[in-house]
Write a protein that binds this DNA or RNA. Structure first.
Lengths: 150, 150
DNA sequence: GATTTTGTGGTCGATTCTATCCATGACCGA
DNA sequence: TCGGTCATGGATAGAATCGACCACAAAATC
């Protein structure tokens, strides 16, 4: 992981469809050498996946919400984590310091969808309490990469 | 934006390097037709960009933090937004409902980096107050796509 | 200490696959 | 019937991929 790998990742982050020759010109390397480096970066996990950033609105998910979750004292934390991983509307789930256990970022077609999602959390007895914040606008946002069928 | 476009985006989100023939097989369309749809999806902004998800740790950014920001009453909100857009360590910036103005997600090489970032916010007189939460682990996380040189 | 050995990471060129473009054709609504 | 939209299929240009070969640095041997 040297300076060149770093630059390759930066270039791919901007546009991962540029040609190896293009990238090579940016880092003074032949296309083959760049290809080999990308192969290694992918194999080592430094590059997790090649993907597209989509506009959530275009996908019918105009509502972005952040939900603070305090897990119920008797809840199964492992179950909560795997729940989070299987729900496609959850685009982020972080275990955080501070008064709350988890922070969720979720995309939904409507506020009603958020409400339904909260109901699900309650039904499954994960929640001790929660707080929801709706994103009004997002000056910086990676958008949305559908995980699974949605 | 029909069911087919939706599926194409899902397939590209999983792996945007698969061939048009591959995708075509998934949606019963010829490679050319798929190409044309992707072109339109990109032109319309439904697909924002083709990118890579990187592992923040591999890039030397093992610390992920969420910072709640309440803007100072006399601060220039537009200036804050453009500040957010130009700082590469900010991977998300959302204007949210509730007691806080903005939620930031930032990636940093260390806790000292977070502290330095908070100092910058203070120096620029953006802050009325703030609260920082550190991510301990992230069961679901899109990782990191470097914006700009970093 | 000089020389050989070995391994890593590079270039170059041949081959195969892919995207792209264009001409053509089907289908639907006015 | 006429137009517009969208798909197909084939030709072409361009890209990724692979293998053979090369340069360099570090380690081992004489």
């Amino acid at each position: 992981m040297d300076r060149i790998d770093h630059k390759i990742i930066t270039l791919l982050a901007e546009d991962c469809r540029r040609s190896l020759a293009d990238i090579g010109a940016g880092v003074n390397l032949s296309p083959s050498a760049v290809n080999e480096r990308i192969r290694r970066l992918t194999a080592s996990g430094a590059i997790r996946r090649f993907t597209v950033e989509a506009d959530p609105e275009a996908l019918g998910l105009p509502v972005t919400a952040f939900i603070w979750v305090a897990l119920a004292p008797d809840s199964d934390e492992a179950a909560f984590r795997s729940f989070a991983q299987t729900r496609p509307e959850i685009s982020e789930c972080h275990h955080v310091t501070g008064p709350w256990s988890y922070l969720l970022k979720i995309h939904s077609p409507s506020l009603a969808g958020i409400e339904a999602f909260l109901s699900t959390l309650k039904e499954r007895r994960f929640l001790a309490r929660s707080e929801t914040m709706i994103a009004l606008s997002s000056p910086v946002d990676p958008g949305f990469s559908p995980r699974g069928d949605l």
